[in-house]
Design a protein around this nucleic acid. Structure first.
Lengths: 212, 212
DNA sequence: GTCTATATGAAGATAGAC
DNA sequence: GTCTATCTTCATATAGAC
């Protein structure tokens, strides 16, 4: 097993001090970005010395990679916790969409998104890992959900395959809300607005692909 | 007129040397991020000395703000160049959507997006400016387009207002393509994939809100 | 493995001549 | 306004004792 799939598995390889360092480094990197974060800040946050950090991680980049890998794993885990009940397409999409929005609009997910998107040109593997950890996992879940609905003749996917339909739904869910939150870090999203958007997304999707 | 609306207007205030500096700084900041960029790199890229930079801009932050402001203005300009022909909703949306995708998937727009999203927590005004310069401008254009279509009874916006409908269309256009490109900087998007997504977005929108 | 202390380089910003 | 040279601070990383 090369890529750790859960936080627990990832951290099993590390001693307690290393986990302390990772935890502190996460906070610092996610708050200040790769270049904005300094090993001094991390060391101080972790309450250890410089050499302890370098005893476990060859250099700043290695530590950064470990941090983002860890965060992506947690992200995946929090998405996989999302439940959906096959049978009622409307209800399934509502639950799935609502949970998805809660995840991607959370402070920690936004921070991860910011740093991954910013550093992807310098660390392409991070971009790939993030995409696989988040958007792709959700896509699979939604595709499964839609597959059931298609088989049950609740929706009609003649002109579009399951993957594409899933991407349509996710795009509708993410909508302007994600971008707005990214560009207005000081303004949290109103719960009522989030509800409204979930309804619009579902309405749009069901109108376009539902069987009436 | 407080906020410059075009590149030309913005640069009118600056002497030739200052424009050289801004231009060089744009390249460096957009490539390396705020913290990754150094005043040395900028100075070298511009072919001027340190003091010349500091003669025109109080400090690194001020220069950064000027650069992003300039980039946002260019972004707005390139979007406002997009034409749409009232009358045929399908065709209007196709032209608008296609042009929009070309803009947001361009290297320069992606670079701007990366740095704005990354630095928004430290420079909230940049986030606001970017949102107003890009997404909001497109939203207005699409809303106008949809308003015409609604009046002409080509679409039916009973359960959703023009602004919301515009956001739906934009979300569908941006879709997974934008995110994929952001997380895979090394893999340009296939033109055929872009075409396919434009069609899916329009099909979905017209099915959901078109009058048949 | 972990600490304190430090080497070494590079960053942002300024002084002073022209 | 623009240059060269430099000040000061702070960054990453390491040496050497325990």
């Amino acid at each position: 097993m090369n890529v750790p799939q859960t936080v627990a598995q990832l951290n099993l390889d590390l001693g307690p001090k290393a986990r302390t360092v990772i935890h502190a480094a996460s906070k610092i990197f996610l708050t200040h970005g790769f270049n904005g974060a300094t090993t001094d800040m991390i060391q101080r946050e972790a309450g250890v010395s410089k050499s302890t950090v370098y005893a476990h991680f060859a250099n700043k980049e290695t530590l950064f990679l470990a941090v983002i890998q860890n965060e992506c794993a947690m992200f995946t885990a929090s998405i996989q916790d999302i439940e959906f009940t096959p049978g009622n397409i409307n209800q399934s999409l509502r639950l799935l969409g609502h949970a998805y929005l809660n995840v991607i609009l959370s402070d920690s997910a936004l921070a991860l998104y910011r740093i991954v998107v910013a550093e992807a040109p310098r660390f392409p593997s991070l971009g790939h890992m993030f995409y696989r950890s988040g958007p792709n996992v959700v896509k699979s879940m939604v595709a499964t959900c839609l597959s059931h609905a298609n088989n049950a003749n609740e929706i009609n996917l003649n002109d579009i395959n399951e993957q594409e339909a899933a991407e349509v739904f996710i795009a509708l869910m993410r909508s302007e809300l994600h971008l707005y939150r990214l560009t207005h870090p000081d303004k949290p999203v109103e719960p009522s607005l989030q509800e409204r958007w979930t309804e619009i997304a579902i309405m749009t999707f069901v109108r376009a692909y539902g069987v009436h």
